[in-house]
Computed example of a mutant assay.
Amino acid sequence: MKIVIQRVSSASVLVDGKLINSISKGLCLLIGITTDDTEKDADMIAKKVLDIKLFEDEFQKRWAKNVVENEYEILSLSQFTLHATLKGRKPDFHKSMAADLSKELYQYLLNKLRNLYSAEKIKEGVFGAYCQVNIVNDGPVTILLDSKNITNI
């Protein structure tokens, strides 16, 4: 499972021009699920996302607090293109898990985040929908995680 974590001042997702969800300060997650991902991968990703220290504390010390400690929100979006490989000039998505299976694992991950943190703080787009994502990256801070490379959870 690959995930792009962006620290944001705000983020929103629209489908067919209609606002689906939005957050103010927090994290925007772009989540790509591959054919060999399991619930164990989702468990590791959820713990890491909630624990990673990407925010300042009250003394402006950088990298001191996580999203939970600050009670910020998370906007999560599925993004199968994270596992793309190039065949010539065209992307190939054979490493991405099939939509029906990945939707189940994606929902598992979101439920894990909600259970470990707060259901009201975890927002999402529409799985598999063509959408527009507005992200105001704060910093900019962008972290790439791969569940196959996570240590120290």
Rank of each mutant, 00 (worst) to 15 (best):
48 K>M: 10
114 R>W: 05
81 T>I: 06
88 G>A: 05
108 Y>R: 05
78 S>D: 03
44 M>A: 14
72 Y>F: 15
3 I>W: 00
61 K>W: 00
36 D>C: 05
37 D>S: 07
128 G>K: 06
13 V>N: 00
56 E>N: 15
150 I>Y: 01
105 L>R: 01
85 T>F: 06
59 F>G: 00
36 D>Q: 11
21 N>M: 04
39 E>M: 10
123 K>L: 13
139 G>R: 06
151 T>F: 07
47 K>Q: 14
44 M>T: 03
124 E>C: 06
103 K>F: 10
17 G>I: 02
112 K>V: 09
136 V>W: 12
106 Y>F: 15
24 S>R: 13
36 D>K: 13
112 K>C: 10
69 E>F: 03
26 G>N: 08
99 A>C: 03
40 K>D: 13
90 K>A: 12
103 K>S: 05
89 R>G: 14
48 K>G: 02
100 D>C: 03
32 G>K: 08
83 H>W: 14
106 Y>A: 04
85 T>H: 10
18 K>I: 09
152 N>M: 02
111 N>R: 13
132 Q>E: 15
26 G>V: 07
149 N>R: 11
133 V>K: 07
8 V>D: 01
69 E>D: 14
104 E>A: 08
50 L>N: 11
18 K>N: 12
90 K>M: 10
145 L>M: 13
31 I>E: 04
24 S>T: 09
22 S>N: 15
12 S>T: 03
83 H>C: 02
140 P>F: 09
95 K>D: 12
114 R>T: 05
116 L>V: 05
66 N>G: 07
114 R>C: 11
91 P>H: 00
15 V>S: 11
94 H>M: 08
23 I>E: 12
147 S>V: 02
40 K>Q: 12
84 A>V: 00
27 L>F: 15
120 E>V: 08
121 K>Y: 07
74 I>S: 07
66 N>C: 12
68 V>H: 08
39 E>T: 14
94 H>I: 11
129 A>L: 09
35 T>W: 00
148 K>S: 13
71 E>V: 02
13 V>T: 08
103 K>Y: 11
77 L>R: 02
144 L>V: 11
38 T>N: 03
116 L>E: 15
40 K>A: 12
80 F>G: 06
120 E>M: 05
96 S>R: 03
18 K>C: 02
56 E>K: 15
19 L>C: 08
11 A>M: 08
4 V>S: 07
71 E>F: 05
120 E>C: 01
111 N>F: 05
77 L>T: 01
139 G>T: 01
135 I>D: 01
69 E>V: 01
39 E>S: 04
122 I>W: 10
133 V>W: 11
146 D>L: 04
28 C>H: 13
57 D>L: 02
127 F>W: 11
97 M>P: 05
109 L>G: 00
115 N>G: 14
96 S>Q: 04
60 Q>A: 07
107 Q>L: 13
106 Y>G: 03
38 T>W: 02
73 E>K: 12
117 Y>H: 08
98 A>G: 08
107 Q>F: 13
42 A>P: 07
67 V>L: 02
63 W>D: 04
